[in-house]
Simulated scan of single mutants.
Amino acid sequence: MLDKYNLKMPHAVYSGENSLENIKTILLENKVNKLAVFTDKGIENAGLLDYPMNFVNETGVDVIILDELPAEPTYSEVQKLVDQFKESKADFIMAVGGGSVIDTAKLASILVTDEYGVYELLDQPKLAKKCIKTLVIPTTAGTGAEATPNAIVAVPERELKIGIVNEEMISDYVILDAIMIKKLPRKIAAATGVDALAHAIECFTGNKANTFSDLFALEALDIILNNIIPACDDAEAMDAKNKMQIASFYAGVAITASGTTAVHALSYPLGGKYHIAHGVSNAILLAPVMRFNESVCREKFAIAYDRCVHGEKACTSMEEKSEFIIKQLEHIVKHLDIPTSLSTFGVPASDLDVLVKAGMEVTRLLDNNMRKLTPEDAREIYKKIL
């Protein structure tokens, strides 16, 4: 565990019933003249944008909607939207969407300059400084993008997704209103929810884990393990959905304080080369990587058991507790009908070398994994999920 650590969070976070009402106060307090709203066509077509826009329209501020963003965007697709934002001369950003929408909005907040763009930040993320404040309203309970300093973009020429990390991108305001995820399709709720689950357990078991990250990671893990299934299965389970939103935020804070590990590292090539959704990629790898890590993370998993299992506790030894947690991860992924094999996505065994090479390039995350992972280890993990 680190002996030096820090915690950086959004300026203000609002949650609970009717928390979208805070939009009016936020815009008025910041004397916003022109608001840039980042979203996507799916959010608009589902009618979700109407909820926050009803409050925006009451303020009378000028608005531009930026919604030409595909799923799992490349850095050039993100740059296109950033350029549209710059041309708009908006003085405040509101993001309404999932991880890709939020990440694009966060990048726009630090890329008002013409001196560099998204491409330059791939290798020099610290170049940029925040120029525009952001209000983030997530429409999934999973990515934690509303809390993190990270923005994930696909880089086609490297067949990889790359995380741009810059603390200047941490959101200024966050609103977690469960009405925004009430109608979320089960498939998306499941994938994004397991993404948050991965964040929580990876941050808790990483080399950079510390007092601050453990506080948020363990709380997130407790909430997710006990709420993800009803939140996904029952459209009316609003309490579970609200808890999942809060847990996703907590897990995002844990990322900011420590960081993810080999699950995310090995999942990046799956999104970059095969365009598998980020949450699904993590779900496929979650239990296999945690089984690989078990020998060095056993004590951590036992602590997680003691914290997250309520009622009668049947496991007594550290080994039993550790195995229980891993089996719970497997159970959740199976129950939520998330694929556990890459064959579902047409990934051939002949691509194994390519996967290993790309996964091992994500050293920022692999270095945080408690058990050292070699190319041979990565190969064995990928073989298990082919």
Rank of each mutant, 00 (worst) to 15 (best):
V309S: 04
M360Y: 00
A358C: 01
K183N: 13
N282I: 01
L336D: 14
T74N: 14
T59M: 12
S100L: 15
L352R: 12
I338T: 10
R371H: 12
K243P: 07
E72Q: 10
M290N: 06
H335N: 12
D353F: 06
E115H: 04
I64F: 15
T140Y: 04
S88C: 13
R298A: 00
M370P: 01
A90Q: 14
G144P: 00
F204R: 04
I303P: 00
N369H: 03
F85M: 09
A95P: 12
S171M: 10
V155S: 02
H275Y: 03
A12K: 08
D377W: 00
G193H: 07
E380A: 12
P288M: 02
G271E: 03
E202G: 04
I164G: 02
Y51S: 08
D306R: 13
K208W: 13
N242M: 09
E202Y: 06
P149M: 05
G142H: 04
I170G: 01
S267C: 03
N6W: 06
Y51G: 00
A235E: 15
K41D: 12
N227G: 03
V96D: 03
S295C: 05
L28W: 00
I326C: 05
V263M: 08
V194K: 00
L285D: 05
I303Y: 11
T104L: 14
K4I: 01
T148E: 05
Q79I: 15
D83R: 14
I152E: 05
N6S: 12
G206E: 03
P156V: 12
M290R: 04
G98H: 14
D172E: 13
A287H: 03
A200H: 10
I110R: 05
A314C: 01
N207D: 09
K182S: 09
K182D: 09
G311C: 08
S213C: 06
T39N: 13
P185W: 14
T211W: 02
N207I: 06
V280K: 02
V61G: 09
A141M: 03
L135I: 08
Y305I: 01
R186Q: 11
K89H: 10
E294P: 01
A231I: 00
V101F: 11
F38E: 05
N57H: 13
T148R: 00
M290K: 05
G16S: 03
L122N: 01
L28Q: 11
L270V: 12
I23W: 06
D337M: 13
V78C: 15
A302M: 03
Y75F: 14
A217K: 03
A251N: 10
L111P: 15
A147I: 05
N210M: 02
A198G: 03
L111S: 14
I303R: 13
V347Q: 06
I385R: 15
E29T: 06
Y382W: 11
L121I: 07
S343V: 13
A314H: 05
T140W: 02
P230A: 02
G311V: 02
